[in-house]
Amino acid sequence: MAALNIKKGATSHSAYELRDPNAQLSESHTLAVLVDNEAGVLARVIGLFSGRGYNIDSLTVAEVDHTGHRSRITVVTRGTPAVIEQIKAQLGRIVPVHEVHDLTVEGPSVERELALFKVAGAGEKRVEALRLADIFRANVVDSTLESFVFEITGTPAKIDAFADLMRPLGLADVARTGVAALSRGV
């Protein structure tokens, strides 16, 4: 499996230097896992993370090839470099997994998340919410006299920032999809 470049995990350091996992900082990595869309495949991937004590910060999954029945699972996870290497190797040996890509290290990539925000309010707050939504290029996908539903797409950080602004303006509900990511270029 090309995505599992074993050499990357190898080290010329002595056995001593990498011993203490706490000595290394935890990193966030975005992994793209291409799988056969068969029954239970998502449970296998999630079960691996929970069973071995890994973190999932975000998870998205959908079939991306309807004829070949392939799904793409995008996982944002955290861990020391050694743990990240182990996560990739463990994912790679799940039988219906075809490819594992670490988008964080394999070159530049784009990450996007979609979110829906329900903001309830009246008067000045309502106007201000609409004005900020315009700045963030959020679309209004539902409106009543007391509320808006905004649709916003962007990096998780942008969506967090939008949420912070909406909170004092009557934020009633949020739905987020989690991160979808692709490498840049070909």
């Binding site: 074993i6 050499k7 995990g9 080290t11 056995a15 001593y16 290497e85 182990q86 190797a89 790679g92």
Partner: peptide
């Protein structure tokens, strides 16, 4: 664990390599 050695590890399972002990030659 074997503090002064160079470690080579031959294994058919990629997840066995560098799981517990970081090796010099996988």
């Amino acid at each position: 664990f074997s503090p002064r050695s160079i470690k080579a590890h031959v294994d058919i399972d990629a997840s066995s390599i560098n799981k517990v002990i970081q090796v010099d030659l996988p």
